[in-house]
Design a protein around this nucleic acid. Structure first.
Length: 783
DNA sequence: CAGTGAGCGAGCTTCCGCTTGACTT
C-alpha cells in the first residue's frame, strides 16, 4: 500500500522531489505526454465536433502500466506536471488514462524545485483546470489539421513525402526570404579612413573618419589634404555610462551564447545541458523564463560577497519580455551557486562554466564606464577624425561575464586614450584609406534562427532544436560553410610625405555554418505562400495564441475556435488540390546559342537539374552544389553540359573532367580525383594540371598506408587519424594504441571487438533503423 | 562516391510539444 503517489514529467525531477518529500511519498515520472492523437489517420473526428481520437503512445505503454498499478493502491495521487498548457493536459490525460477518482486526486504545481516550493505546493492543491486543458487540445488539433491536410497537398503538387506545418514552414520561409534579400542586395564600395596620431608627449592614439567616402577621387583628395594639414584636438567629451548584466539563460539565449562562444549547434547544446541536468548540476534546460528562485538569488549573493566583496553584489530578478512565454520553470542556472567547477567532459565543463558565470553575473553590480569622444580637426578640411575610448571605472559584473552579440564587429576604439585637451596639436604617424564593401544582411545561423522564431512566438523551448533538425532532414535548408571569393581591394597609405596605393587580397562572402535554403525549400515556400497565405503569415501563431488564451479563460469553446479556422482552411485545401498546377519550380533561362533550343531548370526526380530542349533529343544535367535554380545564369547552366570533358591521354588512358554529386572530378583509368577547391576550374583545367592532381593523389595514397598484412588487413591514415581496414569495413583503433606498433594478432583482436559492437547495434535498431534510412534517402535525393 | 530525369500506379509519407534513451559517426 502506497500512501501518496506523486507524478511529475521528468525522471530527474522525480528523484530530487522524492528526497524533499521523504517517507510516505512515492514520486514517479510520466516522461512527458503519455497519450497523443492517433498516429496514423487524422486522429480528429471532424464530423463530431472535432472529437480527438487519443491513443497511448507506443513508447509509453510500460510507463502507463506501471503508473496504473501504483495509482490503484495509492491513497492519494498528486498530479504534479508543469504549470503550463501542456502540463495541464498531461495531468488531465493521466487522470483519464489511469482512471483516477476526483476525491483522491490532487493537482499541484511549482515553478522551482526547492523544498519550500514543493511543500508549499502540497499544502495548496487545486483541481485540474479544464479550460487550460481545452486550450491545449485546440492547439494540438489545430497543428494536426494544418500538418496533415497541408502536407498531402505537397505530395500531390510538388513531391511525395514532403511536410508542412505551422512552425516548420514558417521557419523555412524566414531562411528563404533572407536569401532573397541577400540576392537583391547591391553591394557598394566605400572607403574607410583611419589614422594613428601622436601627442607632443609621444603617446599614440588611433582615430577614424566617421564619414564614408564613396569614391576614390574624394578619398585621394582627402589624403592630399591630410598631407598638408596640421591636426588639432577640437573637443574632448567625457561621459559616464553604465552597463547592465544580461538576464540568466533561457533555452533560446543559452543556445545563442553556446553557439557564439563555444561553437555548439543547438541540438548539441541541448544534449550537453540534458547531461548536466541529469547529474543534478543545473536546473531544467527547456524553459522560457528568466526567473530565479529566492534560494538561488540568496546563494548567488553569498558567493559574490564572499569571493568578490559586497560592492560586487546586486541581487535582482528579471522580467520576461518574450511573447507567449509560459514560465513553468526557472531560468537555467546551476543547482548550487557555490560550485564554480564540475566534473565532466570538456563540453559539459564549458557549458556549465557559461551557465555559472551568466547566472552569477546577473546578480552582480552594473559596470561603470567612462566614454571619451575626441574630435581631431584638420587645418584645411572640414571633415574631422574622431577617436573614442572607453575606460572601466568599476568592472562590476564584467569581472565574470560578457555577453556576445550576433552583429559583433571589431570595435576599433581604444580602451584608454592619452590625456588630451582642447586645441592640443597632434602629429600624424600614418593614415590609411582602405576600400570596403557594404554588407548584405547576414544569413541565419541555427541559433539566430531560434532567436527570430522566439521573437515571433513560433515554436517552444522543447522544439527549437528538433524543428531545425527536421527542416534540414527534409532537405528544405542546409547548414554549411562556404569559402568566400578573393578580391583585390585598394589600400592607400599616407606616410611621411608619400602617398602610396596598393592592391591587397581580401576574402569576401565567406560563411561559416550558416543556413541556406535549397531549391526545394524555395519552391515549397512559394507554393505554400501562394495558396496558404494566412498560415504562412508570421502573425498566424501569435493570433492563434490569442484565441487559445480566450479558451483558457473560459470565454470561448475550443471546438468553436477550431471550427472557425477549419472551414475556410479546408476549402483552400480542396480548391488547391483541384485547381493548382503541379509545381516543379521550372524557370526558363533562355536559348542555347548552339542549337537554339530552350534551356530551363526545374526540380526532377533526383533534385534540381538543367534541361536543354524537349521531346526526344532532350539533354539533362544536375545542378552543382551551391547553385540555386533561382539565381543560376544561362551561361552557368550551359557549362554544366560541357561535361564529361575529355582532356587527352595519360599512361594510355583517357583523362576526363566530370561533375558529380560531390563536385568536379578527374577520371583516369577508373580512378577518381577531386579538383582542388578554389584553384582548379573544371571548365578550363589543362591536361597538365590534371596529371599533376593524379600524381598528388597517388602520393597521398602512398602516405596513407601505414602497414599491410598478408590476409588483407591494412592500417591506414585517415581524416580522423589511423584506422584498420579489412574486408571493406573500417575499424577504430583505441587512442592508447600506437598505430605503427600494431601486430596482425592485435589487429584481428580489434576487428573482432569492434565487429561485435557493430553487429549488436544493427540488431537492436529494429524499427528505428528503418526510419533513419528513409530520412537519409529523402534528404540525399534533394541535395 | 563519381548515375539518374519515363511510366505503370501499390502503399507509404505528414503535424507540434512533452519527455528520455538508444542509435551512429
Amino acid at each position: 500500500m502506497i500512501e501518496n503517489l506523486v507524478i511529475v514529467e521528468s525522471p530527474a525531477k522525480a528523484k530530487t522531489i522524492e528526497k524533499f518529500l521523504g517517507n510516505g511519498y512515492t514520486v514517479k515520472s510520466s516522461f512527458g505526454h503519455i497519450r497523443d492523437l492517433e498516429k496514423k489517420d487524422l486522429g480528429v473526428d471532424i464530423a463530431h465536433h472535432f472529437q480527438p481520437k487519443y491513443e497511448i503512445s507506443s513508447d509509453k505503454k510500460t510507463v502507463v502500466k506501471e503508473l496504473k498499478a501504483l495509482a490503484k493502491e495509492a491513497k492519494t495521487v498528486w498530479l504534479a506536471s508543469d504549470e503550463d498548457r501542456e502540463g495541464e493536459a498531461i495531468a488531465w490525460h493521466l487522470f483519464e488514462v489511469l482512471k483516477l477518482k476526483p476525491e483522491n486526486t490532487k493537482r499541484i504545481v511549482f515553478h522551482e524545485i526547492t523544498k519550500d516550493a514543493i511543500l508549499h505546493a502540497i499544502q495548496n492543491p487545486r483541481n485540474i483546470d479544464k479550460n487550460l486543458v481545452d486550450a491545449q487540445q485546440a492547439r494540438r488539433v489545430l497543428d494536426r489539421l494544418v500538418g496533415f491536410e497541408m502536407s498531402p497537398v505537397l505530395w500531390k503538387k510538388v513531391k511525395p513525402s514532403l511536410s508542412a506545418g505551422r512552425v516548420q514552414s514558417v521557419a523555412v520561409k524566414l531562411i528563404v526570404e533572407r536569401e532573397r534579400e541577400i540576392n537583391a542586395f547591391k553591394e557598394q564600395p566605400y572607403y574607410r579612413v583611419t589614422g594613428i596620431f601622436e601627442t607632443t608627449d609621444k603617446a599614440q592614439l588611433k582615430a577614424e573618419v566617421q564619414e564614408r567616402f564613396s569614391n576614390q577621387e574624394t578619398t585621394q583628395a582627402y589624403l592630399q589634404a591630410c598631407k598638408e594639414a596640421t591636426f588639432q584636438v577640437g573637443s574632448v567629451e567625457t561621459k559616464p555610462s553604465i552597463r547592465k548584466p544580461a538576464p540568466p539563460f533561457t533555452t533560446s539565449t543559452l543556445q545563442q551564447e553556446a553557439s557564439r562562444k563555444l561553437g555548439f549547434s543547438v541540438s548539441q547544446t541541448m544534449s550537453v545541458a540534458q547531461k548536466l541536468y541529469e547529474h543534478g548540476l543545473i536546473t531544467y534546460m527547456r524553459t522560457d523564463s528568466v526567473n530565479l528562485s529566492d534560494l538561488a538569488i540568496r546563494s548567488a549573493k553569498a558567493v559574490i560577497c564572499e569571493t568578490l566583496g559586497e560592492k560586487y553584489s546586486k541581487p535582482r530578478n528579471f522580467a520576461t519580455k518574450t511573447k507567449g512565454a509560459q514560465e513553468a520553470h526557472e531560468a537555467i542556472r546551476p543547482t548550487y551557486m557555490n560550485k564554480p567547477e564540475i566534473e565532466g567532459d570538456h563540453n559539459e565543463k564549458q557549458l556549465y562554466d557559461l551557465i555559472y558565470k551568466r547566472t552569477l553575473a546577473s546578480q552582480m553590480a552594473e559596470a561603470e564606464l567612462e566614454k571619451t569622444n575626441i574630435t581631431i580637426h584638420l587645418s584645411n578640411h572640414s571633415i574631422p577624425f574622431t577617436a573614442t575610448g572607453e575606460v572601466i571605472i568599476f568592472d562590476g559584473f564584467l569581472k565574470v561575464y560578457m555577453e556576445s552579440h550576433d552583429d559583433e564587429t571589431e570595435d576599433e576604439h581604444n580602451d584608454l586614450l592619452p590625456a588630451l585637451n582642447k586645441n592640443d596639436f597632434l602629429n600624424r604617424i600614418h593614415i590609411t584609406a582602405s576600400e570596403q564593401y557594404t554588407q548584405h544582411p547576414p544569413r541565419y545561423t541555427e541559433a539566430s534562427l531560434v532567436k527570430k522564431m522566439e521573437a515571433l512566438g513560433i515554436g517552444r523551448p522543447s522544439t527549437y532544436a528538433p524543428t531545425i533538425t527536421t527542416i534540414q532532414n527534409r532537405g528544405y535548408i542546409i547548414r554549411e560553410s562556404r569559402d568566400g571569393v578573393v578580391r583585390n581591394v585598394e589600400q592607400t597609405e599616407l606616410k611621411g610625405n608619400e602617398i602610396k596605393t596598393k592592391a591587397i587580397r581580401k576574402i569576401f562572402g565567406a560563411e561559416k555554418k550558416k543556413l541556406f535554403p535549397s531549391d526545394m525549400g524555395m519552391v515549397v515556400t512559394d507554393f505554400l505562400s501562394e495558396h496558404f497565405k494566412n498560415i504562412m503569415d508570421y502573425n498566424f501563431t501569435a493570433q492563434a495564441e490569442e484565441s487559445l488564451d480566450h479558451i483558457a479563460e473560459g470565454s470561448v469553446e475550443w471546438q468553436k475556435m477550431i471550427g472557425e479556422f477549419y472551414s475556410p482552411f479546408h476549402e483552400t485545401v480542396e480548391t488547391t488540390l483541384k485547381n493548382s498546377e503541379r509545381n516543379s519550380g521550372q524557370r526558363i533561362l533562355g536559348t542555347d546559342p548552339a542549337t537554339g533550343e530552350t534551356v530551363s531548370v526545374r526540380i526532377g526526380r533526383f533534385g534540381p537539374m538543367a534541361q536543354i530542349g524537349e521531346g526526344e533529343k532532350v539533354r539533362y544535367a544536375g545542378l552543382q552544389k551551391g547553385q540555386l535554380m533561382e539565381t543560376i545564369t544561362l551561361e552557368e547552366a550551359l557549362t554544366l553540359f560541357k561535361f564529361p570533358r575529355k582532356l587527352g591521354q595519360y599512361e594510355d588512358h583517357e583523362v576526363a573532367i566530370g561533375i558529380g554529386r560531390f563536385g568536379p572530378y578527374i577520371k583516369h583509368n577508373n580512378v577518381y580525383v577531386s579538383l582542388k577547391k578554389g584553384e582548379d576550374d573544371p571548365g578550363t583545367i589543362t591536361l597538365e594540371t590534371a596529371i599533376q592532381r593524379i600524381e598528388e593523389k597517388r602520393e597521398a595514397d602512398r602516405n596513407r598506408l601505414i602497414k599491410a598484412f598478408d590476409n588483407g588487413v591494412q592500417v591506414l591514415n585517415g581524416r580522423f587519424g589511423p584506422y584498420i581496414s579489412y574486408n571493406k569495413t573500417n575499424y577504430k583503433i583505441p587512442k592508447t594504441q600506437k598505430a605503427e606498433e600494431l601486430t596482425l594478432e592485435k589487429c584481428m583482436e580489434l576487428i573482432e571487438k569492434e565487429g561485435s559492437k557493430k553487429k549488436a547495434g544493427k540488431n537492436t535498431t529494429g524499427k528505428k533503423g528503418k526510419t533513419t534510412a528513409r530520412k537519409s534517402k529523402g534528404s540525399s535525393a534533394s541535395s
